[in-house]
Design a protein around this nucleic acid. Structure first.
Lengths: 238, 238
DNA sequence: TTAGTTAGATTAACCGGTTAGTCAAACTGT
DNA sequence: ACAGTTTGACTAACCGGTTAATCTAACTAA
């Protein structure tokens, strides 16, 4: 269903889609208001139903858009022209930065995970097949390759991923709570920069057979990928 | 506010509260239906408004109930009569098991984190102060104590927590997706048991100055705390 | 004991507002 | 003229919340 739009304006469809992404991110499927989406896209509500079958289809489309972009970016990093270990460090750092600058997107994905676990969600299958499975395969191959060449420690690749990505997710997920009960604010740029550095350096020292090399690569990757400016305001792509 | 109810039945209030916990867990605040809650509690809808001001108050009450129970259990472990390191291992293992057997509760908390981050949620402050701050303080003191006595490595206590708890959260959060794209099912009892063991043993080898001692304590804790039976069906407390 | 009283607990029926979704008319570029 | 787009107006269903009435059981006074 590529939807061959000939002339001008199917940018309208895009405006709707991105307005939907934001609205769904902030309010969830049930909480989102179609009127609000239309308003944000500067479009009449009925137009939503011209481009999308119903609210849930729009939700699914928004989800696929996000997942596609996320997975695409990730795959680009996984196919970079450098050693498996370095690519893994970059992949993890990118994941942190995505949590940082695209908190709405992450929220959308997390909400969908809950929704899917609760039994609903038919969109999940599509996303998994088209977006995340290719990414997943590449990541796993990468780890195997790294272990095979002797660059990486021979531990279960999954455990490695859980530790690295889990810490990122949990950092931002718990941030609002931590801010309330601890002396620090995890969303403060300085705190984030610190955490970002620590996480990658820690990973560098954990997964490489040659720890010296891991530390050096971690530093190099951190230098090559500066932390994104954006913190909270969350503007859209387009 | 103990609510001095003289006679019989204020178990009704409890039925409503637990029905609400489940409904809100599965559908979120906006998605939950008051009618469904009343139905599940075998009670007329109007009775919800007899016991609770409105839907949001009920939601807040459900959240506080969950948070109180979670924090209470955690504090009990943190005050056990053993070394700080062992208590930390137990605390982390308990966290894993809570994710395992109370997935609805965790979903509720995670959704509220998202909600709070998006700006709404007045309940969060209360929960943080009454439930999580005491828990947090005890955990931090514990880590300091452990480092002071030389049992634990002298790393930032927070980084330690992020790695340990983050991996747990991410494991269950990503499980539905992983099930779709990988050959394994992370929610299969065998897989969970494996992950559970690995996580604690890994922590044991990471945070102790004496790694031998860490490994031994991890094994002991795993033996002392068997994995809960329950996997998915999710029955309530009562 | 008991008839009368009171307060809390529970319900059926209903209401007003909101929301997803529709439609026919109007506009636009070619 | 006309297919592709865009819109204001409309509706049917739903949902949170209210109301007035009923029921239950403990309390009270003779």
């Amino acid at each position: 269903m590529p939807r061959i739009q000939h002339h001008r304006a199917d940018q309208t469809r895009d405006r709707i889609l991105h307005a939907a992404i934001r609205e769904f991110s902030e309010h969830g499927l049930a909480g989102a208001r179609t009127g609000a989406i239309a308003g944000a896209a500067r479009v009449n509500k009925a137009l939503l139903y011209y481009y999308f079958r119903d609210k849930e289809s729009l939700y699914a489309a928004a989800l696929e858009e996000v997942a596609g972009k996320v997975a695409g970016d990730a795959i680009a990093v996984l196919e970079l022209d450098c050693s498996p270990g370095e690519r893994l460090l970059r992949f993890t750092l990118q994941h942190f930065d995505r949590n940082l600058s695209r908190q709405g997107f992450q929220a959308l994905m997390q909400q969908e995970m809950v929704r899917f676990r609760a039994g609903r969600s038919n969109a999940m299958q599509v996303i998994a097949k088209n977006a995340f499975e290719p990414m997943w395969d590449r990541a796993m191959n990468l780890v195997e390759e790294g272990i095979g060449s002797g660059e990486l420690c021979s531990v279960d690749p999954m455990q490695m991923m859980y530790a690295a990505l889990g810490a990122n997710v949990f950092y931002f997920l718990s941030a609002p709570m931590v801010k309330l009960i601890a002396a620090i604010n995890p969303l403060d740029p300085a705190a984030m920069a610190s955490r970002r550095t620590t996480a990658i350096e820690y990973l560098g020292q954990t997964i490489f057979t040659d720890r010296r090399r891991g530390a050096r690569l971690a530093k190099a990757v951190l230098a090559a990928m500066p932390m994104p400016e954006n913190a909270l305001p969350e503007r859209k792509t387009a």
